[in-house]
């Protein structure tokens, strides 16, 4: 059996879980099947029906009266309990914040190896897998052993398609044996800044700036363009380290990884640290004075020139052509 841990926040699915299920289905079809999934927390119950098209034969639902919001060690203990009961050949989680964290807790509890951010697996007695290093600018081929094999799936690499022939998914609730220590670390509060900004990971378009923006004031025009397009503003490590743009908006290996429909990279050279954060974008438009910059040569589209001239002209043109604008 192959077990997939579904990441959700209070019942809202993290779509990276569906990419993980693509790899989990492959492993199940290769002989280690059937595919089961785990949802932790009663608030996730409604997701069982949404997951059925992705092919799980069984949806395990871990419910516990003390489990009301995300608690990493408690999620891991629910996973460990289910592993003991069902003895899967492999357990997969999305390589998201929560997926990585819960899998590492489970690996520590089981004293088993864990492979983070895998992109491909050849099944067998040991798994021969490919995983990403340096945020994706380098690949590692490795052997993974263990009973079960524990791995997370790199975000924005695999498709998130439904199963070709999904069956009916059976829901099986169970109560994990949680200790007080398992519940010590949990989300106790949430802070939401005022305003209804689009989050970087959900935005369809991200307008981002780097060294070429030159100042905090220079970011105003990026914000204006993002607002016009209903998108979000991001920055490179240079821009956030200079304080031109808030660290929460850093795109890159040590910041946020994004996969918007369009990424508009303004004055960003495209060092590896940045590229790995934005390479998931479906289309990239680079605006840069240097036609040889890696960001330009790797982009889908590029405009060569000074962003301080191009962006104001673009904003004026959008206002002119947009109906009612």
């Amino acid at each position: 059996m192959i077990l997939g841990l579904i990441e959700h926040d209070r019942g809202t699915l993290n779509p990276q879980s569906l990419e993980m299920l693509t790899l989990a289905r492959e492993l199940a079809a290769a002989g280690d099947g059937p595919l089961h999934v785990l949802l932790v927390g009663g608030e996730a119950e409604g997701l069982a029906a949404d997951l059925a098209p992705y092919g799980p034969a069984v949806v395990h639902l871990a419910r516990h009266e003390a489990l009301v919001d995300y608690a990493p060690a408690a999620w891991a203990q629910a996973l460990v309990d289910l592993i003991a009961a069902e003895k899967p050949a492999a357990v997969l989680a999305p390589g998201s914040d929560r997926g990585s964290e819960v899998m590492a807790h489970a690996a520590a509890r089981l004293n088993l190896p864990m492979a983070a951010n895998c992109t491909a697996v050849t099944p067998g007695e040991a798994y021969r897998l490919t995983r990403v290093r340096w945020g994706g600018s380098l690949l590692e081929e490795a052997w993974l052993r263990g009973d079960p094999k524990l791995l997370t799936v790199a975000p924005f690499v695999l498709p998130d398609d439904p199963a070709p022939e999904p069956g009916a998914a059976v829901v099986r609730p169970f109560t994990p044996a949680l200790s007080e220590a398992d519940l010590l670390v949990r989300v106790v509060d949430r802070v939401q800044p005022a305003g209804d900004k689009v989050s970087l990971t959900e935005a369809k378009v991200v307008v981002s700036g780097g060294r070429g923006v030159g100042s905090a004031e220079g970011f105003d025009v990026l914000g204006e363009l993002a607002d016009l397009l209903g998108g979000a503003v991001g920055g490179s490590r240079v821009a956030t380290n200079f304080g031109w743009c808030t660290h929460a908006n850093q795109i890159g290996q040590t910041g946020t990884r994004i996969a918007p429909d369009l990424y508009i990279a303004c004055g960003i050279s495209g060092a590896i640290q940045h590229w790995v954060g934005c390479k998931g974008a479906k289309q990239i438009l680079a605006v840069n004075t240097d036609p040889e910059a890696p960001m330009v040569t790797r982009a889908t589209y590029a405009v060569i020139g000074d962003l301080h001239e191009i962006l104001p002209a673009l904003i004026a043109e959008i206002r002119r052509v947009r109906p009612g604008g």
Binding site: N111, L112, P113, M114, A115, R128, L129, T130, R131, R133, G136, S137, L138, L139, E140, E141, A142, W143, L144, R145, G146, L285, A286, P291, V296, T297, R298, A299, T300, Y301, A302, V303, I304, G305, D306, E309, I310, A313, L314
Partner: peptide
């Protein structure tokens, strides 16, 4: 040691595409 056991490192294939230049300046 416990794993995973590294076999080798590989550079990912460079995407085979040419950037489309939309133009110069405004």
């Amino acid at each position: 040691g416990g794993g995973p056991e590294k076999i080798r490192l590989v550079n990912p294939p460079e995407q085979d595409h040419a950037v489309q230049i939309l133009g110069q300046g405004p």
